[in-house]
């Protein structure tokens, strides 16, 4: 396991575990700071996306559509590289917005990081 730096308080912890990158995301995310989240996630996908990108969003009480767009962009980059994006620990407001966006069945949702790490 190795720690990764993202340079933003929105992603205070990230680590590489074998073929996965696990990142904690925290804070309310809207159009003001979603570009910062985008930069951090794209940085994590360099030089090559892992097989799994696991985003623990249990510390995110709120997202708006601009944050969802960032997640979709990361999902598409992962898919293009043959990988999967997992979201863990969703709070109700974030889950609700994913449902409105019809993305709750497109992202792989897990309760915990461990579940995501063990998933096929």
């Amino acid at each position: 396991m190795s720690e990764l730096k993202t340079g933003t308080d929105l992603v205070p912890l990230a680590r590489k575990e074998e073929n996965a990158i696990v990142a904690q995301v925290q804070g309310e995310i809207d159009l003001h700071n979603s570009p910062e989240l985008r930069s951090a996630l794209l940085q994590l996908l360099l030089p090559a996306p892992p097989k799994k990108l696991i985003l623990n969003v249990s510390g995110v009480p709120y997202m708006d559509s601009s944050a969802i767009a960032v997640l979709v962009e990361a999902l598409q980059k992962m898919r293009k590289a043959g990988g999967k994006l997992y979201l863990t620990g969703l709070q109700p407001r974030v889950r609700g917005l994913l449902e409105i966006a019809r993305l709750d069945t497109i992202f792989v949702l897990k309760s915990t990081e461990d579940e995501a790490l063990k998933a096929p």
């Binding site: 559509s65 969802i68 767009a69 979709v72 598409q76 409105i100 966006a101 019809r102 497109i106």
Partner: peptide, 20 residues
């Protein structure tokens, strides 16, 4: 009311207004 393609960017804000 809905996104025909959930992966297509844009429009989610208006869908929220319409649905909620």
């Amino acid at each position: 009311e809905w996104k025909s393609d959930p992966l297509k960017p844009g429009g989610l804000g208006l869908i929220c207004l319409n649905q909620l």
